[in-house]
Each structure stands twice: as structure tokens, then as C-alpha cells.
Design a protein around this nucleic acid. Structure first.
Lengths: 164, 164
DNA sequence: AACGTTCATGACATGTTTGTAATTACCTAG
DNA sequence: CTAGGTAATTACAAACATGTCATGAACGTT
């Protein structure tokens, strides 16, 4: 019944491409906590969901782009309030402290022209793609395959389930 | 003959909207040094050009957007290698460590779709606009007016001279 | 030429994010 | 049930960007 794949802290870090220390720090400071199993004291183990991986990868991407962790925090706080939408191949657009999802290029250009200052744009499609690729490469079909959803749709617009 | 307006360190900081400490730090660490008169020891005075103001404002904008100073440094290093173009109402696009200038919305969308990860977009038109506004507001026509180029073209696409 | 103001500089303090290393708890195998 | 390995915790260190403060040099004015 548990369709959800679970990932340990270490694996999560490897898949997402961050250090364990970062994963740990982010969990402690409430940026992204493991949604399956939180840490319960020394020696306990965190368990991350596939969803978590995607979010973490978004964070990682933003960091790579030179964003300050604080800015990422703001973006996520704001973004979490509008989850649940259909985010197919949407683009995450961060305008200072606000975040929006732009679905088409047109919408994006529109946002750009009306917005003041800098806009940070992240195509979400690529995020899923990268996470999936990392999973199969690092952990090729664990021990369960016929039921899981670890399959990757190469380049086409794979719809991210419940957002993000 | 000197058509170029000059700005002291303090004024520069005020106009651009940064602290003097930042201006100082950036100058010392070679991010943006005063192109008119560099510091020559204690008691000397830095003199910034209008060009400098624009660049500084770009930095400020990027910082406000949550970019790390290091990322800004990269962007500028790369950007400086392609100055001298016609940058009318272009958009500065930072793709990780690379920077490009997108002239139209179409070009922008194109860059977006081909680029991996996050893109940081900054419409340059707004930058000039803001700097000019700050100048007139803080220092309404110093004591020389008939010759200087402190005039502002309100909202239209004012072409930034030699880029940026 | 003296003086007060301005400004570059240097020393120091701070917060944030991460690395490293040591410690401790959990889990599975024997 | 015990041993070992793995992973989470904790404590410490370090880098970066900036604020604060004190110092002294240069500028402009009288």
C-alpha cells in the first residue's frame, strides 16, 4: 500500500547532490524536514520521501544559481502556501520575497515585464528529470521494481504529481 | 570637456542605496572600483562615474534578489568581457556562472528553455531609471546644469550608452 | 597657516552556513 | 544477546559579508 519510496539521509544527500551536513542543517533549521520520519534524538534515522527529494533538488538548484539560503527560505515559505496546483512543466519564479508559478513562456515574459528588479526562474521539469536520473544511476531499482514509480520519462513534459 | 559627472563615495552609496561599508568593501575586493579616482591611502577620495553607479545598482539589485555576492562577482567578471554592445532595454540574464544579454522576450524564453537550472533575469532599463530618479531626488541639479547629462528620460526605452 | 569636516583604513565583532571530528544510539547479523 | 557498522548528534572551527569604532590623512575654508 505504501506507494511511497523512502530514502535515508545519506542516500538522499547523494541523490540530490548535497552534503550530508547540508541536509542535516536544513532539517534542523526547518527548511526541509523528512516528511516520512523525523529525527528523534542521537542515532535515530531520518526518512525522506520522493517529494522531499524534489524539494531538496529545487533548493540545491537555487543555491547553485548563487541564491542565498535565506532567499530560498523565503521562496519556500511563500511557495508552500500555494501547493496543490497542477504544475506540469511550470517554472518557479522568485521575485524577491514572492514566488509564483509561470506555466507558459508568455506568462513568464508577462511577469518579467511587470516585475521590478531581478527574477529568478527555475524550470521544474528539469528538476524531476535530474532527481530520477540520479536515483537510477546511484541505486538501480533497489529490490522492488514492478510496483514503484521510479520510472523516468526522458525529455517530455512529465507532470509532477502534487506540485513541486 | 569632462562631460562625465563625478560622485563621491558617500553620495554614491546614498544614490545606489547601499551602505558606505559595502561600497568600500566592494572597492577593496575589486568588485567595482571607482573608475574616475581610485583610493590612494588614508584621506584620499574615491570618485565614481555615472557608469559606476549603474553597475553598482545592478549589484545592489542582484543582492536584493537574494544572490550571493560571490555569484554577483562571477556574473560581472563574465559580463565585463562582452561590454560595448547596444544594450537598449536589454535584460541581463545570469545562468550560473555565465551572463548574457537578452534583447527581446522571445530571446529570453529561448534562453530559458535551453538553459539548465536557474536563470536570474534583470531588466536593465529599470536600473538606469532608478539611479536617475535617486540622483535628482537626492541632489537636484548640483550647481551645474546647462552642460551636464543628469537629465532623465522618464519611462521610455532610454538606451544605456556604452552598455550597462 | 590653522581647523574642522570628510573619508579611507584597520582592527574587531557578529551572524550565517558549512566542514571536520568525536560521540552516541540504532539495527541487523551471528 | 552481543558485536559492528552505519547514521544522527554535538561541539568546534572557519569563511564570508557586513556593522561598528577609532585613527589619521587630505581637502576646503577662513
Amino acid at each position: 500500500m505504501s506507494v511511497t519510496q523512502s530514502f535515508s539521509g545519506k542516500r538522499t544527500a547523494e541523490i540530490v547532490g548535497i552534503t550530508y551536513r547540508q541536509l542535516d542543517y536544513w532539517a534542523r533549521t526547518d527548511l526541509i524536514k523528512p516528511s516520512l520520519t523525523p529525527a528523534t534524538g542521537s542515532g535515530s534515522r531520518r526518512l525522506y520521501s520522493y517529494q522531499d527529494l524534489l524539494e531538496l533538488k529545487v533548493v540545491k538548484s537555487l543555491l547553485d544559481a548563487g541564491l542565498k539560503l535565506e532567499a530560498v527560505r523565503n521562496a519556500f515559505g511563500y511557495l508552500r502556501t500555494q501547493l496543490g496546483e497542477d504544475v506540469a512543466s511550470a517554472n518557479l519564479v522568485i521575485n524577491g520575497s514572492r514566488s509564483v508559478l509561470a506555466r507558459s513562456g508568455a506568462e513568464l515574459v508577462d511577469i518579467l515585464q511587470n516585475g521590478q528588479g531581478v527574477l529568478n526562474v527555475l524550470p521544474l521539469a528539469g528538476v524531476k528529470q535530474q532527481v530520477d536520473a540520479a536515483i537510477v544511476q546511484l541505486y538501480p531499482t533497489p529490490q522492488e521494481a514492478p510496483e514503484q514509480e521510479i520510472v523516468i520519462e526522458p525529455s517530455d513534459v512529465a507532470p509532477l504529481r502534487s506540485v513541486l
